[in-house]
Design a protein around this nucleic acid. Sequence first.
RNA 1: GGCGCGGUGGCAGAGUGGUUAUGCAGCGGAUUGCAAAUCCGUGUACACCGGUUCGACUCCGGUCCGUGCCUCCA
Length: 461
Amino acid sequence: MRTVKLYNSLTRQKEIFTPIDPDNVRLYACGPTVYSYAHIGNARMAVVFDTLAGLLRTIYPKVTYASNITDVDDKIMTAAKETGQPIDAITKKYADIYNADMAALGCAAPDIQPRATTHIPQMIALTQKLIEKNHAYASDGHVLFHVPSFPAYGGLSGRSRDEQIAGARVEVASYKKDPADFVLWKPSKDDEPGWDSPWGRGRPGWHIECSAMAEQHLGLPFDIHGGGADLKFPHHENEIAQSCCAHGHETDLAAFAKTWVHNGFVTVEGEKMSKSIGNVMLAHDLLESYPGEALRLTLLSAHYRQPLDWTQSALEQSKKTLDRLYGVLRDLKDIEASPNEEIPTDFMDALCDDLNTPKALAALLALSKTAAKDKTPQHKKQLLCAANLLGILQQNSDEWLGYTRDTSDPDAAKIESLLQERNEARRSKNFARADEIRAQLTAMNVTIEDTPTGAIWHKSN
RNA sequence: GGCGCGGUGGCAGAGUGGUUAUGCAGCGGAUUGCAAAUCCGUGUACACCGGUUCGACUCCGGUCCGUGCCUCCA
């Protein structure tokens, strides 16, 4: 059987991935807080873990992929205040948009998409457990995790508690026993969302939800926990602290999740993406002008752990690459893909080596070259299988390339008649007129190709 | 200040102790009335300085530069 190697942030090395239960590989990735449109950084996380889940599915009989939606958070409350909309309206709206946008990027829906607000009792129970075990304390309506009670704290991000305090830029709240302590539960004002709890009406801190939801839906320990690199500290560090301490695994950081996978950051045209610079690229907006597959390919064109600079030219290049691949598929239209064919070894080797998508893509391009030349059912099938694993080439090639005829298009008749006229002109060697017509069609976004069997055209976009 | 990551040909981007990454662009050619599309050919690039080695872009040390995180953040 094939094995996958993954870089484990917890051990800081590439490891051979061995499932805890080979009959059910369990994967959790931290999803978005739904207060706005998903940006290209959110999309990278979704695409990376979708691809990882897909790879694992080709190897193991069952994969359970959970990715949460955070629907209670101070940022959401702020958005509600600013827009005057109710909180649930906002979270529902943006959760739906998130799912639609990620689907457009070729991401399969996670098997489980838990929401924080439907897991409040589990979070309260977990918090109580931590208090019972003296890892947390109630203070001034808050419940805080007491970091000094967990000497192993900091193991994921590799920083000692003292270092954090030295580097802290934030004022220490008075209700904290220790500057590093973090909130498990906090009180809500009357106009804020809240739930009854043993500590009064309040709402959960950010980190506890993932601990509670991962435990409930996947069981502990589970195989892989993922998310953006920036979540390593404090979010993932705190998840580990909560979950390990609640279950008496104070010395074993892997008692929550065995393998930690973090994707790198996305910059935009060389700059950090931020609201103040105004360069936040929203998946939703990009999908207006580019197909989801082009966005997806761009996100997979760098290794997932490397930083990715999002540029217009990278996006154009992805589009071009897809055009060429679809062109190959179009040439193979009449070839029936052979029913069962293995995914090519070098392609799989690349993906299995810590999800090396750029290398896999190179293998796929080599494969497309072979397929275009040999035109065999086997090669076609291999190409389709490999592309499927990357989540590309899922569409009809004619449609992608603009060869399909939309009869409702008001230009269609005009294009046809111009093409006719050009054919006439060419036959009578009136090339000046023929070129004039081509220029006219080019202006209409129509590209002509003269083939041995006659001229064909497609819409260029 | 602390912890981390990275500097590869015009651009994007893998990888390796000694052998072509790949793609885009460019250049040359085939094809075409001219194009388009396609095909063929074409680039000894690995920040700098030392060290280890028969041999380093790849390992070690240092320098410079860029960048991320340090309790809002995918």
